[in-house]
């Protein structure tokens, strides 16, 4: 029997979905080596593995047969779970990277490091306030910074880590808070720091102090909260909750859009 147009479209769309699935296979399932043309050799904890040249360190380790429990979180450069140290062939330099955000290179020697243990000081900003003395009380080691800049060099987010430490020593919390803002708390700076400063906990405290004490209350926010508490919108909500989806749709369609 002749297929209807609808059936034909349906088959075509199904076929498109299959093609999309097929094209994404290398990132949604394990990689089939038959499909790989370009290879590099890397050394994972001392052992050589041949891996596809196109992968991140994380994907390459998986291709080689590692299944992560530790060492993988967001897989996108946001969580810091995949801190890695490596050396390149013929280089003396020890480099740091995020395994999920770094492409493999031929001859890399790499180890993933478990998250370095670090004591997090416990504080209560409401009671203690946010002065420099409070920061020093909880992080006395910050005074030991020798300005070696090792932390800055280790940071995979390319933050000016040492400058932030120096700013804290000067009491410039605003600078430290703003310039450490993109810190994903991977801990790579801290494992390299000769003064054993726990940068990521320290920065966290300073950012919280800045966010809490360094900016004025937001006027609009305060006002709106008060209105809600006073029940300003109750009546209208009661009405809205009684409407049918059709009636709501009408309101939605007519709503005014104000974006500037």
């Amino acid at each position: 029997m002749e297929k209807t147009l609808e059936e034909k479209t349906s088959e075509r769309f199904l076929d498109i979905m299959e093609r999309i699935k097929e094209s994404n296979k290398s990132v949604t399932t394990g990689i089939d080596e038959k499909e790989i043309k370009h290879w590099v050799t890397i050394y994972i904890m001392g052992k050589a593995y041949k891996v596809p040249a196109d992968l991140t360190l994380m994907q390459a380790m998986e291709f080689a047969g590692y299944r992560f429990i530790r060492g993988a979180g967001c897989r996108a450069g946001f969580c810091g779970a995949c801190a890695t140290i490596y050396r390149k062939k013929g280089e003396y330099k020890l480099r740091t990277a995020l395994a999920c955000q770094t492409r493999v290179e031929d001859g890399m020697y790499l180890v993933q490091i478990p998250f370095a243990p670090a004591e997090k000081p416990v504080y209560n900003l409401d009671k203690e306030g946010g002065g420099l003395d409070v920061v020093f009380k909880h992080f006395p080691e910050v005074a030991r910074c020798v300005s070696c800049n090792t932390c800055t060099k280790a940071c995979p987010q390319t933050l000016e880590v040492m400058d932030c430490i120096q700013a804290i020593l000067r009491g410039d919390f605003k600078f430290a808070a703003e310039n450490s803002f993109d810190c994903i708390q991977c801990g790579l700076c801290s494992i390299r720091c000769p003064a054993e400063i726990i940068h990521y906990h320290l920065f966290q405290m300073v950012r919280r102090i800045h966010g809490k004490f360094g900016v004025p209350p937001e006027p609009n926010l305060e006002k709106r909260i008060k209105e809600i508490e006073e029940g300003k919108f109750n009546e209208e909500f009661e009405k809205l909750l009684k409407l049918s989806p059709e009636e709501l749709k009408e309101i939605y369609r007519k709503r005014e859009i104000k974006l500037d």
Partner: peptide, 28 residues
């Protein structure tokens, strides 16, 4: 309704914990 009516106060909660939201020079 719960989502939208609680929204401003939960933002305030975050600010009081020290979360740094983007602001203009007047604090808005």
């Amino acid at each position: 309704r719960a989502l939208v009516e609680d929204a401003p106060s939960i933002i305030k909660w975050l600010v009081e914990l020290g979360a740094m939201f983007d602001r203009d020079e007047n604090g808005y």
